[in-house]
Amino acid sequence: MPGGVDARFTLAAERTVLAWVRTALGFMAAGVAVVYVAGDIEHPILETALGLIMVALGCVIALLGAWRWRQTSLALREGGEMPGPAHVTFLIVGIVVVAVAIAVVIVIQT
């Protein structure tokens, strides 16, 4: 159809948003696991804070993924700018911050 979007691009955008959702669910599950499964942390406030931060970050990742998917779909359909790398940078920074926090907690425990 003239002016239509190639299905390959639409499906690629859907696969990308599903990857964002998988990452978000991973963060949420890990946050719940930190609070309810990992009972090794001596400071329960630290354990709860780390778990809540991971769940909140998972929620933010899911919302950012949905927003990027919507922006990408609009850009494919109507033309215009594709979403920039800011959200991906946020995701990378979030992962690094959580990893460092976990490392700090492990060091404090030993």
Rank of each mutant, 00 (worst) to 15 (best):
M1T: 05
P2W: 01
P2M: 01
G3E: 00
G4C: 03
V5W: 04
D6M: 01
A7C: 02
R8V: 03
R8C: 00
F9G: 07
T10K: 08
T10S: 14
T10P: 00
L11P: 00
A12S: 04
A13M: 02
T16C: 05
T16Y: 04
T16N: 13
T16D: 11
T16A: 10
T16P: 00
V17I: 06
V17F: 04
V17G: 03
V17K: 06
V17P: 00
V17R: 12
L18Q: 11
L18W: 07
A19I: 02
W20P: 01
W20T: 03
T23R: 09
T23W: 07
T23H: 08
T23P: 01
L25R: 13
G26H: 04
G26M: 02
F27C: 03
A29G: 12
G31I: 03
G31A: 06
G31N: 07
V32Y: 11
V32C: 05
V32D: 11
A33Q: 09
V34N: 06
V34W: 07
V34I: 13
V35T: 08
V35D: 06
Y36L: 14
V37D: 10
V37W: 09
A38W: 14
A38H: 12
A38V: 12
G39A: 07
G39Q: 11
G39Y: 08
I41P: 02
E42M: 09
H43G: 08
H43W: 09
P44M: 02
I45Y: 11
L46K: 08
T48L: 13
A49V: 14
A49E: 11
G51S: 05
M54R: 02
M54P: 02
M54D: 02
V55Q: 08
A56S: 05
G58W: 01
C59V: 09
V60D: 08
V60F: 10
V60G: 04
V60M: 10
I61Y: 02
A62K: 04
A62C: 07
A62L: 09
A62G: 10
L63F: 07
L63W: 09
L63E: 05
L64D: 05
L64S: 03
L64R: 11
G65R: 03
G65E: 04
G65I: 03
W67H: 07
W69N: 10
W69T: 03
T72I: 01
T72C: 03
L74G: 02
L74M: 05
A75R: 02
L76R: 05
E78K: 02
G79P: 00
G80C: 00
E81Q: 15
E81G: 11
M82W: 11
P83W: 04
P83R: 04
G84K: 09
G84N: 10
G84F: 10
A86W: 15
H87L: 12
T89A: 15
T89E: 12
F90M: 15
L91E: 12
I92V: 15
I92H: 14
I95W: 12
I95D: 11
V96D: 10
V96M: 14
V96L: 15
V97T: 15
V97F: 14
V98Y: 13
A99E: 13
A99W: 14
V100C: 12
A101N: 14
A101S: 15
A103M: 08
A103F: 10
V104R: 10
V105K: 05
V105Q: 10
I106D: 09
I106H: 12
V107K: 10
I108H: 04
T110K: 05
T110E: 02
